[in-house]
């Protein structure tokens, strides 16, 4: 194949009259259409308006920072998009947990630090939804599901967990979620992560 053959093959490609007409028409309609004003618009914004906007922004920023320390409600959504419940997220700072063991019974004491806000001011009892116990090397020695619900009294609930015999040593109970309850109401998952050390 020489370059003349290549040239001939490519030059056989021609724009059909139909395509040419369409291109010309679209170019003509482009000319006749009103030209978009692309010039940069200068606008005047008054200084007081800028100040007010800055104050609002600062207020919003402060609110966001404050809200950052608090938990938040979140819908529990089923696979098909249906909302099936509500959970409360990022709550570790609102509940203080500690643990102590006596025999086979581990008592987790949950102290609510923000009793006056929702959801805590409405809650009547509290349990643990899921937890695990790990040894000093980080190996899980026990995993547990939802416990019974225990009454919140004076902002405090003592949750009892039965543990099978475990060897003497230092352990950590890691709680992934609490569950809050109120009479005649659906339970509320309170998600976070709480670590409580105890020694057998």
């Amino acid at each position: 194949m020489d370059s003349k053959e290549l040239k001939r093959a490519v030059q056989n490609i021609k724009m059909s009259d139909e395509i040419r007409d369409r291109v010309i028409k679209s170019c003509q309609s482009e000319i006749s259409a009103p030209k978009e004003n692309t010039a940069r618009k200068t606008s005047y914004v008054s200084r007081p308006a800028i100040l007010i906007a800055a104050v609002i922004c600062l207020g919003l920023a402060a609110t966001v920072v404050a809200a950052g320390n608090m938990g938040l409600f979140k819908d529990i959504v089923r696979f098909d998009g249906t909302v099936v419940g509500t959970a409360y997220e990022q709550a570790p700072g609102e509940i203080e947990a500690s643990a102590a063991i006596a025999g086979s019974e581990l008592t987790v004491t949950a102290v609510i630090t923000k009793e006056d806000i929702l959801p805590y001011r409405e809650l009547e009892n509290l349990g643990i939804d899921s937890f695990r116990v790990v040894d000093s090397k980080g190996n899980a020695v026990f995993k547990g599901g939802r416990t019974e619900m225990y009454e919140i009294d004076g902002g405090k609930a003592e949750i009892k967990i039965f543990l099978p015999d475990i060897a003497a040593g230092s352990y950590q109970a890691i709680i992934d979620a609490f569950v809050g309850g109120k009479k005649a109401d659906q339970t509320l998952l309170i998600n976070g992560e709480w670590e409580c050390e105890f020694t057998v």
């Binding site: 490609i13 021609k14 724009m15 040419r20 291109v23 010309i24």
Partner: peptide
């Protein structure tokens, strides 16, 4: 515009 399309149309289309 028409003249330009006629002059360069084939070359650009190729």
């Amino acid at each position: 515009v028409e003249a330009v399309v006629h002059r360069y149309g084939d070359m650009l289309f190729r």
